[in-house]
C-alpha cells in the first residue's frame, strides 16, 4: 500500500490566543490505510504539537474522538482516508461549545445522562428476594441489548438539529440509555425515568429527523428508542386520563 499527500483543514481555537476559531491547513504524507485519527496523530507528533484533541482506544469503543469530518459527525478512528479523496476538513463536534481546537465541552451531556437514572432500579418486592443472579432469557436480553451499545460519543447530538435549536432537549443518546433500562426485564424504574423522558424537553422535543440513528457508529438507533418512548408515553396518558379504572 502506498502513501499520498492529503490536505487537511483543521479548526483551531486557543482561547488564550485567538479571538475566534479559524482553520489551519496541513499538508501531510499519509499511508493509504490510515484513519483521520492517524493523520491527526502524525500532525501532532511531527508537524504541530500544539494541536489538541481527545482520543484513546483507536477501536471505536471509548467514544473520545468524535469530530466533524467534512461536515459529518464521525469517530476519527473510524474515518478512513480512502473514503475521502479530496480535502478533509476537521472540526469539533457541532452543537457543543469549543474548549480548544477539536476539544468540546460536554458537561451538558454528562449532566443530562445522570438525570434519566441510567441504572437498575429494582422492581418492588421481587428483586430483594435473593442475592443471586436474576434470570434473563436471551430473548429478554435481545429486547434492550442494542441500546446498551451506546459509547457516549455524542455524534448523535452533533447530528440532531433539534438539539442545536433547543439546548434544553435531553437528546438522543440519553433517551436511548434511559429506554435501555426501561426495556430491561430486571428493572422496575420506568415511572421514575418518565419524569425526564416524557417531559417537554424529553422525547417531545424530537421531531423525528432520524439523523441520530444515521450517524451512530454503533448502530444503537436512538431514533427508534425515542419513538418507542413516545408511543408508550402516549399510551400512559390515555390510560391515565381516559381509562382511569385501569390505574391499579
Amino acid at each position: 500500500m502506498g502513501e499520498r499527500t492529503v490536505e487537511f483543514e483543521v479548526l483551531r481555537y486557543n482561547p488564550e490566543k485567538d479571538a475566534a476559531p479559524h482553520f489551519q491547513r496541513y499538508s501531510v504524507k499519509c499511508r493509504e490505510e490510515w484513519v483521520v485519527l492517524d493523520a491527526l496523530n502524525h500532525i501532532k507528533e511531527s508537524v504541530d504539537p500544539t494541536l489538541s484533541y481527545r482520543w484513546s482506544c483507536h477501536m471505536a469503543v471509548c467514544g473520545s474522538c468524535g469530530m466533524m469530518v467534512n461536515g459529518e459527525p464521525k469517530l476519527a478512528c473510524k474515518s478512513f482516508l480512502r473514503d475521502y479523496p479530496g480535502l478533509i476538513r476537521v472540526e469539533p463536534l457541532r452543537h457543543f461549545p469549543v474548549e480548544r481546537d477539536l476539544v468540546t465541552v460536554i458537561d451538558d451531556f454528562v449532566a443530562k445522562l445522570a438525570r434519566v437514572k441510567p441504572f437498575l432500579i429494582p422492581q418492588p418486592g421481587a428483586a430483594q428476594a435473593g442475592t443471586g443472579e436474576y434470570a434473563q432469557t436471551p430473548a429478554q436480553l435481545k429486547r434492550y441489548k442494542q441500546f446498551t451499545l451506546c459509547i457516549n460519543c455524542m455524534l448523535c447530538y452533533a447530528a440532531c438539529p433539534e438539539y442545536g435549536l433547543i439546548p434544553e432537549y435531553i437528546g438522543p443518546a440519553v433517551i436511548a440509555l434511559g429506554h435501555r433500562w426501561n426495556e430491561d426485564s430486571r428493572d422496575g424504574g420506568r415511572a421514575q425515568r418518565q419524569e425526564e423522558l416524557a417531559a417537554t424537553n424529553g422525547v417531545w422535543d424530537c421531531s423525528f429527523v432520524g439523523a441520530c440513528s444515521e450517524v451512530c457508529p454503533e448502530h444503537v438507533d436512538p431514533a427508534a428508542a425515542i419513538q418507542q418512548v413516545k408511543i408508550k408515553s402516549t399510551i400512559d396518558w390515555y390510560t391515565e386520563h381516559l381509562m382511569p379504572w385501569l390505574n391499579k
Binding site: Y13, P15, A20, P21, G71, E72, R94, H95, P97, V98, E99, V105, P161, G164, L165, V209, G210, A211, E214
Partner: peptide, 18 residues
C-alpha cells in the same frame, strides 16, 4: 473561554437528510 458557535438555518442544506 469556550466558544459557542451560532446556529444558522444553513444546517438544512448541510446533508440531504436534513
Amino acid at each position: 473561554r469556550p466558544h459557542v458557535r451560532p446556529i444558522t438555518s444553513e444546517w438544512i442544506f448541510r446533508h440531504p437528510r436534513y
